[in-house]
Amino acid sequence: MSSDFEDIYYRNVDMIYKICFIYFKGNKYDAEDAVNSVFTKLLEKNKQFESLEHEKAWLIVVANNYCKNKVKHWWNKNKELNFEIKSEDHNNEILQIVLDLPDKYKIPIYMHYYEGYSGPEIAKILNIKENTIYSYLHEGRLILKDILKEENYE
């Protein structure tokens, strides 16, 4: 096993963990398993990347696909995935709301607002039409707004 792999691992593990964490609605055990599977796939494929961006995008796609398949699995469909995010120092209300969003909104919102990807970039990485990404972001924002209004969040 080359040190290249370890470099890639340490460079991206936090991001992949976050994506998986969001997908699995805060279930850290499932998220850790997913991280394990995503990087195992990388090791098996022995993938060579053209740039750091390419590397990041590839891992996002793999994590996205893995989590999507996992969540769709019949076992997980019947499983309650509502974990409450607790933190001593911070209030995680928005994150909790994002986790409760339908799956299709979560990753575009994460990629846009956290990773700083633009609409066309997200569309390219996730292989979804640009307009669809824009509408996911828009609809996601509206849902968030409604929920926050209901909860009188300022």
Binding site: Y9, Y10, Y17, F21, H90, N92, I94, L95
Partner: peptide, 17 residues
């Protein structure tokens, strides 16, 4: 920004990594 901060809190420990 709050969302970003909250996401930042989602971390995997060095030991778990």
């Amino acid at each position: 920004n709050k969302f970003k901060k909250e996401i930042d809190q989602i971390n995997i420990s060095a030991y778990e990594k």
